[in-house]
Computed example of a mutant assay.
Amino acid sequence: MATRTAAAAVFLLFAVNGALIGGVGGVLPALRERLDVSASGLSLLLFCLAASAVVSMQVGGRLADRIGARPVALVTLSLLALGVGLLSLATSLPLAIVAMVLAGLGNGAMDVAMNSLGVEVEQARPKPIMSRFHAFWSLGNLTAAATIVLIARLLDRSGGDNVGPALGTLFCFGVVGILVAVRIVPVGRRIEHHENGVRSAIPKLAWALGLMAFCFGLAEGTAVDWSSVHVTDVARIDPSTGALGLVAVSAFMVIIRLLGDQAVARVGRRAVVRVGSVTAIAGYLFTVFAEPLPLLLVGWALVGLGVGLVAPQVYAVAGHVGGGRMLAIVVTFGYAAFLIGPAIIGQLAEHFGIQNAMILPLALSACLVAVSVVLPRDE
């Protein structure tokens, strides 16, 4: 597990997952037009993605402990890619719902499995590496956003339907990722949760970390799934240009996550989480009050910088303290919020406007600052 190949395999899993999920978020404005649905229709699709992912996490977490994370990661990556491929062909809401359910079933368990493998790699190393793993997830997001913008430009469409070509391209990327992953993803350890024949209790810290995961999950999920729509609607521009919102989020998440491990080594996870939370607050203030495109992109860039620091630290603490079972609980809270939260944002946008809807992730980013007291100072 302590080899460069093991680390490279985990980098690959995070990157492919980020690209496929980022692709779904990036095409939402164009998908809205193709399916002729409102914000409520988008929130229904995101809810289907979320609900299936939450179910998948519970099953995937138990399987990863029982048989190792490798088979769980490979099977669910295939399922996620299948869902994205089907979504590229969907021209009706029912078919899009089926595609979202498949993608959610794949994404939920894959998230637990790849984070479990990431914690194992970090435990075998002298220095932190979880932030860099998550940087590759953000790099995958950035690749998806750039692909969507580039294809729209190549097709010379201003607000046209680029769903099929964009998601089809990312589906092919996912297939290549699967073929490589089969060769290099490590087996992973099996985890026993019994002591002297008695099942051990889940550490109480899991629930505090779960609350933190819910807060940053909703803030990050909003950024990934709604930044493009937000920029499109507030700045009144075409959907392909609006995808620059996701580009800003993803690019700055990559930058800060590549530097995050160094920051953790110097000042500890608690300080890193607090700085990230305050930065996200500043970014969401821009999304609530600003309207010009440049200011909106500054706001989403700050959100990317902020939330990019938080998730790797919370997941790493969970994995180190309580192993895969505790990590699965915390990841469930995080991804439930990451996936269900944007659906909630859709309802808020429908009734109160998309800028006012951003007050919710703003408030939860502030909550992160308070709850971060539970994190160890020096880890």
Rank of each mutant, 00 (worst) to 15 (best):
G221M: 13
G68T: 00
R70L: 03
V59R: 12
L348T: 00
V176E: 08
L82G: 12
W207I: 10
S38T: 12
E33H: 06
I340R: 09
S227V: 01
P71I: 03
G41D: 05
R377A: 15
P361I: 04
W207C: 14
G85K: 07
A30W: 01
G68N: 01
A366N: 07
C48H: 05
M57P: 13
L102Y: 00
A366H: 04
V163Y: 01
G18V: 06
T279Y: 04
A223F: 03
A9M: 05
W226E: 07
A50N: 06
A146L: 15
S38F: 04
H194S: 15
A145I: 02
N17Y: 07
A328V: 03
N356H: 05
P342Y: 01
P71W: 00
M130K: 10
T222M: 10
Y284F: 15
L35R: 03
G245A: 08
L375D: 05
A213D: 12
P239N: 08
G23W: 05
G23D: 09
A280F: 03
A265F: 00
L295P: 05
L375T: 01
A265S: 14
D225R: 05
A201Q: 12
P29H: 06
L28H: 03
D36N: 14
G26S: 15
M253V: 02
R66Y: 07
I67V: 15
A109H: 00
A328L: 06
V264D: 09
L309Q: 10
V229C: 08
F286Q: 12
L244Y: 05
V112G: 11
G304V: 01
G168N: 08
